[in-house]
């Protein structure tokens, strides 16, 4: 059972501005949660606090009921996919995938064969078997994003974090990767937190969405519920109206 709890979490910068204010959020085991909001709403900061890349000013974040505020990023058992892929440019794909596994220490330390087996299994799952000896720069955008996904998943993380992973891809690839991410989630059942500003991505991927604006949680519920019963004006404007606009555009396009 992996659950994540944000309890009254606040992120305050040195100059006093608050990126996230008193956030209460619960992510259930095996759930796909999408953090949705316009840029600057604090969704990335929330994710980075959980990942250990930003300090938490106030409040607590718990994974499985254990406070992780002061654990270093590497010890939290998380995998993260970055917007820019952030593949290690000087290593081939095999080394990129196994880098995290080789860093495991103490009891978690893995034998060589196990690392090799896991890399092969992950490459197979993501369709990267032929690319293992290539350098990241030889890969296409979609393949790179797959490697980034594999690098995050190969450690069997408690929680998979994704920070706008598809925004560097073109529309066709984005659609393809969206399906693939959902497929992987159903296959592996990893608890996932996914940050995006794209309403369509949120609606299609999420079990539940958490809509943020100006650092505050606006609504936290399954996507269709937010669409049918928006909690406030912001959700109405940002989600419902936007989706209706898209629908209207599509309708008028196909009428002619």
């Amino acid at each position: 059972m992996v659950s994540v709890n944000f309890e009254q979490v606040t992120k305050r910068y040195e100059d006093g501005t608050e990126a996230v204010t008193n956030l209460d959020l619960e992510v259930k085991d095996g759930e796909f949660l999408v953090l949705l909001g316009p840029s600057g709403c604090g969704k990335s900061t929330t994710l980075r606090m959980l990942a250990g890349l930003e300090d938490i000013s106030e409040g607590e974040i718990k994974i499985d009921g254990i406070r992780i505020n002061d654990l270093p990023a590497g010890a939290r058992g998380l995998g993260m996919v970055f917007q820019s892929y952030a593949l290690y440019p000087h290593m081939n794909i095999r080394d990129n995938l196994s880098f995290g596994l080789k860093r495991m220490k103490g009891e978690a330390k893995l034998p060589e064969e196990e690392i090799k087996a896991r890399v092969e299994q992950m490459a197979d799952m993501l369709g990267l078997v032929d690319e293992l000896t290539k350098q990241p720069k030889e890969l296409s955008g979609g393949q790179r994003q797959r490697v980034a996904l594999g690098r995050a998943l190969i450690k069997r993380p408690k929680v998979l974090l994704m920070d706008e992973p598809l925004s560097n891809l073109d529309a066709e690839l984005r659609h393809q990767m969206r399906l693939e991410i959902r497929r992987l989630h159903e296959e592996l059942g990893t608890t996932t937190i996914y940050v995006t500003h794209d309403q369509i991505e949120a609606m299609t991927l999420a079990d539940r969405i958490a809509i943020l604006d100006k650092g505050k949680l606006q609504q936290h519920c399954p996507p269709m519920e937010a669409y049918h019963n928006p909690a406030n004006e912001f959700v109405e404007g940002f989600l419902v109206k936007h989706l209706n606009d898209i629908k209207a555009t599509a309708d008028s396009l196909f009428k002619e």
């Binding site: 590497g74 998380l78 993260m80 970055f82 952030a86 495991m104 690098r151």
Partner: peptide, 15 residues
């Protein structure tokens, strides 16, 4: 050198 590379390494458990 992008910061995200270091952050990725951090999550991979690097000191």
């Amino acid at each position: 050198v992008p910061r995200e590379l270091e952050e990725a390494a951090m999550l991979d458990g690097c000191s």
